[in-house]
Design a protein around this nucleic acid. Structure first.
Lengths: 227, 227
DNA sequence: GAAATCGAACTAGCATACAAGATGCATTCA
DNA sequence: TGAATGCATCTTGTATGCTAGTTCGATTTC
């Protein structure tokens, strides 16, 4: 488990949540493994309480399953939950990119374009950095539309999806993500909701290809009943 | 504050969450009021711990705002958060009713129709019962489409919307909700996604009218900047 | 040898205790 | 009189202790 330093303005609970989430997405905590509150509390140098509260929040998205008096099971990669997370993102963000065509100011477009410059720079250099930039790109679209609370809810559930997306970045070679993002950004800039919708859906459709590769390559992490 | 009995298989945390949510929606806990963990713990006969955890979960949807070392502020009725909650529901459930046209089995249609029978029965008799049936109707649509995790996430945020919806049921006389539901159900039964989408959007559009009435009638509960 | 039983060692839920920051009022001081 | 100060008393965040339920292995029993 990777333990970054605690940020100054972060509560212990937020710190625990951040570190555990990170390690689940990066697979440094293995899908299907059991983790105990005390065990994590020891690693992070905290008491059980903030760790308990962080795990409670994670359990809301079913990324962990708290089994009372037994322990905390980190979920296997579950195609049903990924399908739900992906449905939610596609549905919500498709509507958002359309709205963004009216809502986006010049400064917003600049923010997106600056992000895309950095994406190009880091794509082949630093996978984790790129992953964060990708997340920021999507988050900016929520912000443009004044839907930050929706972002929080969708993002919490997206962790299932993120875990696979992170694997993709490390495994799948043919990455067209940045040009997809450019197409979305250009459509918003051109105030063309039809093009924005199309570009976004094309972007999200790539996942099907990745999933085919990932699901073969990481069989041991994928729960039964999926393919 | 109304305190129903604790269900047998419910943890104290779940009980606290259920009771506090209920009282926020029913306005038995007033918008803008401060509540303390100890105070609620006393009323429910619990310790602070499960109450604290319940409030943490509620704070995720911003329906309460935990101010460290000060207290817990129950949010005013906030048009921005309602707009977000409503956007999320409309966006997600519009997509769902379309999918439901393919997914719904005969048993599912029966479940919806049985629910509608009860809605007609209780509409003028028992507002709270009707409110629950309305919720169940929407929940069933998620279940038909195998999107229960999405239901949980959308529902958590919907509490802002629910608080006003509950006021509507008590204040707004001209209720066409049941016939709306019938139209949605009939479209799903006829496997007509275009009609289902239209019926659902017509249903959700009613809220604008209600909001105009509510926002005048309950000004004291509505946060500044809204109209 | 196999099955049943008991108990030690785990777990999370919850209660309680303590720490540290916010508040408000009484007191002090100019 | 008015502003500043300090303390008593709130609050939530966190740590710790206790309870009860689960697991697993050693021991007993047949």
């Amino acid at each position: 488990m990777i333990v970054p330093p605690k940020n100054p303005n972060e509560t212990n609970r937020e710190y625990a949540f951040r570190v555990i989430s990170m390690n689940i997405i990066s697979l440094d905590i293995e899908p299907g493994s059991m983790i105990g509150e005390q065990e994590i509390a020891n690693v992070l140098g905290l008491s059980r309480t903030p760790v308990h509260e962080a795990l409670l929040e994670l359990s809301k998205s079913k990324i962990v399953d708290i089994l009372p008096q037994k322990g905390c099971l980190v979920s296997m990669i579950d195609s049903d939950l990924i399908r739900e997370a992906r449905f939610l993102r596609i549905t919500v963000e498709t509507a958002l990119v359309e709205d963004a065509c009216e809502m986006a100011k010049e400064a917003d477009i600049n923010e997106l374009e600056e992000n895309l410059q950095l994406q190009e720079f880091y794509l082949s250099k630093d996978t984790d950095k790129f992953f964060n930039l990708d997340n920021e790109f999507h988050k900016t679209i929520y912000r443009i539309c004044n839907k930050m609370q929706c972002y929080y809810m969708v993002n919490l559930m997206s962790i299932h999806f993120d875990r696979v997306r992170n694997l993709s970045l490390h495994s799948v070679k043919d990455l067209k993500i940045v040009s997809d993002h450019h197409a979305i950004c250009d459509a918003i800039k051109a105030k063309d909701p039809v093009a924005a919708r199309a570009a976004f859906q094309k972007h999200m459709a790539r996942f099907e290809l990745d999933w085919n590769i990932i699901s073969r390559e990481y069989k041991q992490y994928i729960s039964d009943g999926s393919k």
